[in-house]
């Protein structure tokens, strides 16, 4: 058995602002060199968690280790290992992109030559070389975010916090950002990511914690989370109304749509179940035009496990209905 080294651990994290409880006993463990995504709706406590772990704010109670140090007792030791990219671009709007990076190099005491070298390298890596001498006000949202992350990387941190790194970005910039995160992880960096985008967590994270009202309501890999909720099914579509009729009469436990001539049969999507279904169609000489397999996605998990800011938890059906209206 190998022991996992943890870059971040937290247990019993609590934080309240007055009577408003933001974090209500949060436990986290992030293995070194992995991506952990904290997924949750607005107001779940994601940003507060990032702030506490990155020494910006202190928890009321709870035991935390980031890079082996306590952010409250030894903030400098923690700060020496982390990089933080917050929700709102933390760049100096009155300095050019290049000056922003050189400023970070100075604050990391890199020395003139090394600072220049790393600045040039990061500008190139993040596609900002042409914009190096422009002020961030002339940048697009995606460029600002890339400059922000580049500034975080000047000090070559081993642990990176990304608080909603792609909120407000267009799909192309979002994918570019994901690619950058993947490269970081390939270099062995630990990434703690907060996001409200399920796809982002699914794409990037090794483990996902679903945060709701200050508590983790589920945690695991994307696949483990998807298994938590029902919703997997096989959909059969027919061309021939007669074949549709016969299948409808023979099969039980499914839902059907007479207009579209489709059947929806609950299934876990395993090859064994699919083979049984296809064999049955063969034996009965029923020809189905098309078969599609639907596994539950993180959307199903999200809606099943999280609540509206002031509402009751959704049942599986309610979440399905909500999704139907959203699409």
């Amino acid at each position: 058995m190998t022991t996992t080294r943890h870059a971040i651990t937290a247990s019993g994290l609590r934080k309240a602002y007055g009577a408003h409880v933001v974090l209500d006993g949060l436990d986290l463990a992030v293995a070194e060199g992995t991506v952990y995504a904290l997924l949750g709706p607005n107001g779940a406590g994601k940003t507060t968690t990032v702030q506490i772990l990155s020494t910006l704010s202190a928890a009321d109670t709870g035991d935390i280790r980031v890079g082996g140090h306590d952010p409250v007792r030894d903030p400098r030791a923690v700060r020496a290992q982390i990089g933080v990219t917050g929700q709102f671009a933390a760049v100096d709007g009155k300095l050019t992109g290049e000056e922003n990076l050189l400023l970070m190099a100075d604050l990391h005491h890199l020395g003139k030559r090394e600072g220049r070298r790393r600045t040039t390298e990061l500008l190139e890596r993040f596609g900002l070389t042409d914009a190096a001498s422009k002020l961030p006000s002339a940048y697009s949202g995606g460029m600002r975010r890339r400059l922000d992350l580049a500034m975080t990387l000047v000090g070559e941190p081993r642990i990176i916090f990304l608080d909603e790194p792609t909120t407000g970005l267009d799909p192309r910039s979002r994918h570019a950002m994901w690619q950058i995160v993947r490269e970081l992880v390939a270099d062995g960096v630990t990434v703690f990511l907060s996001t409200q985008y399920l796809e982002e967590a699914d794409q990037l994270a090794d483990r996902i914690g679903v945060l709701n009202e200050g508590r983790l309501v589920a945690e695991g890999t994307a696949d483990e989370l998807k298994r938590l909720v029902p919703g997997g099914h096989v959909r059969l579509r027919f061309e021939d109304p007669a074949a549709y009729e016969r299948a409808t009469r023979a099969l039980t436990g499914m839902t059907h749509d007479d207009e579209a001539l489709t059947l929806q049969i609950p299934s876990d999507g395993s090859t064994r179940e699919l083979k049984a279904l296809l064999d049955w169609l063969e034996v009965e000489s029923i020809e189905a035009e098309r078969l599609t397999v639907h596994t539950p996605d993180l959307d199903d998990v999200f809606f099943a496990l999280t609540t509206e800011p002031s509402g009751a938890p959704h049942s599986a059906e309610a979440s399905a209905a909500q999704k139907a209206t959203l699409r």
Binding site: S54, T55, L56, R76, R79, A80, I82, G83, V84, G86, F88, A89, A90, V91, D92, G93, L107, H108, M151, T152, G155
Partner: peptide
């Protein structure tokens, strides 16, 4: 501006 929060997380 966000930049001061960045300074706070630096050593």
């Amino acid at each position: 501006e966000g930049i001061v929060n960045r300074f706070r997380t630096l050593s």
